[in-house]
C-alpha cells in the first residue's frame, strides 16, 4: 500500500464501489443460498426451517446426487487432461509455422460460437443413422456399421459424447492461452540453450515447461472450475437424460429447484457446488505452489 504513496482513505474510496458491487452480487447471494439450503421451500409458499435435513438427504438418500458428482469430477479430469495437449499444439504452432495466428484464430472459433448452436450442431452429428446423423453415416461408409450408436441416448456413451463436444469446443481457448504464454518466452533463452546443445524436446523440457507453469496453472483452474459448472451444453443436448444418465451437479440443481420445485434442496446442492469449487481451487493452488518452489 505504501508503495502507492496515497492515503488509505483514498484507496478506500476507489475500492469501495467495486467492493460493494462484488459483495452484493457474490457474497450476499452465497450467504442467502446457505440460508435457503436449510429450508423446506418450494419457492412460492411459506418456507419451513429444517436445519441440515436437505444436506442429510442429499448425501445419504439422493440416488442421483453422487453419480452426478462423479460425472462432474470426471468432466473436470478430462478438461484438465486436455491442457497438456493444448500446450503441445501451442509449441508446435510456435516452432514450425511462420504465421501461426490464422490457425490459432481458427482453433478459437468454436469458443465464440453460442453453446446452443454448438449443442444443436453436435446433436445432428450424433443423430442415429436413420435420422441422417453424420458420425454414424461416416462409420457406415468406413465399413464400421457395427460401431454405430445412438450416441446421445445410450446411457453408457452419452456422457462421453458430451465430454467430447466440450473438449472440442474449448481446445482452441486453451491453445490460445498456452500459445500466448509460449510466444512470450524470450527467444534469447532458446538461442543460449542452442549453443549449449539443447534443441527440440530437450529445450522444451528444461526451458518451455518450467517457464510455462504459471500459464499452465491458469488454464488448469479455468478448465477445472468451468467443468464443475458445466450446464448449458448438457441442457441443450440431453437435458440430463436419458433418465439422469448425463446429469451433473448443476443440472441436478436446476431440476430440483425448478422442475421438482424444491428450492431449498436446490440451494443445498448449490452450496455443495460452491464448497467444491473453493476447496478444489485451494488444492490446485497449493499443488502448483509446491511445484513452483521445487522448480526454483
Amino acid at each position: 500500500m505504501n508503495v502507492l504513496k496515497v492515503p488509505a482513505r483514498t484507496i478506500a474510496v476507489f475500492v469501495l464501489p467495486c467492493l460493494l458491487l462484488y459483495t452484493a452480487l457474490v457474497f450476499v447471494p452465497i450467504l442467502v443460498s446457505v440460508y435457503t439450503g436449510t429450508l423446506d421451500w418450494n419457492g412460492i409458499n411459506q418456507a419451513v426451517f429444517v436445519g441440515l435435513d436437505n444436506f442429510k438427504a442429499l448425501f445419504t438418500i439422493d440416488a442421483v446426487f453422487w453419480p452426478s458428482v462423479k460425472r462432474t469430477l470426471l468432466f473436470a479430469v478430462f478438461s484438465m487432461a486436455e491442457i497438456p495437449v493444448a500446450l503441445c499444439v501451442a509449441i508446435l504452432l510456435c516452432r514450425y509455422l511462420k504465421r501461426p495466428n490464422f490457425l490459432v484464430s481458427s482453433y478459437f472459433l468454436p469458443v465464440i460460437l453460442s453453446v446452443v448452436i454448438i449443442g444443436q450442431l453436435w446433436k445432428t452429428i450424433y443423430d442415429p443413422a436413420s435420422m441422417g446423423g453424420m458420425l454414424n453415416q461416416i462409420l457406415i461408409t468406413l465399413g464400421l456399421g457395427a460401431w454405430t450408436k445412438s450416441w446421445l441416448t445410450e446411457p453408457d456413451v452419452a456422457m462421453i459424447a458430451l465430454y467430447f463436444v466440450a473438449l472440442w469446443q474449448y481446445l482452441g481457448y486453451h491453445v490460445l492461452i498456452q500459445f500466448t504464454g509460449v510466444t512470450s518466452i524470450p527467444s534469447e533463452i532458446y538461442e543460449a540453450a542452442q549453443i549449449d546443445g539443447a534443441v527440440g524436446f530437450t529445450a522444451d523440457r528444461h526451458i518451455t515447461f518450467p517457464l510455462m507453469i504459471p500459464v499452465f496453472k491458469i488454464s488448469i483452474i479455468l478448465a477445472f472450475i468451468g467443468s464443475l459448472q458445466a450446464f448449458d451444453l448438457i441442457m441443450v443436448m440431453t437435458g440430463g437424460g436419458p433418465a439422469h444418465a448425463t446429469d451433473v451437479i448443476s443440472t441436478h440443481m436446476y431440476n430440483m429447484s425448478f422442475l421438482s420445485m424444491k428450492y431449498g434442496y436446490g440451494s443445498a446442492i448449490a452450496v455443495f457446488l460452491v464448497l467444491l469449487c473453493l476447496i478444489s481451487t485451494l488444492i490446485i493452488n497449493t499443488l502448483f505452489r509446491t511445484l513452483e518452489k521445487r522448480q526454483s
Binding site: Y22, L25, V26, P29, I30, S33, F75, S79, A166, L167, Q169, Y170, Y173, H174, I218, S219, I221, L222, A223, I225, G226, S227, Q229, A230, L233, S250, M253, A270, L273, V274, C277, L278, T281
Partner: peptide
C-alpha cells in the same frame, strides 16, 4: 469446459445468477 471469466469467485456467481 471453461468460460472467459478469470476469477474463481466471479465464476461462482454464475451458479447463483
Amino acid at each position: 469446459m471453461a468460460t472467459t471469466k478469470p476469477h474463481p469467485f466471479l465464476r461462482l456467481t454464475l451458479v447463483f445468477m
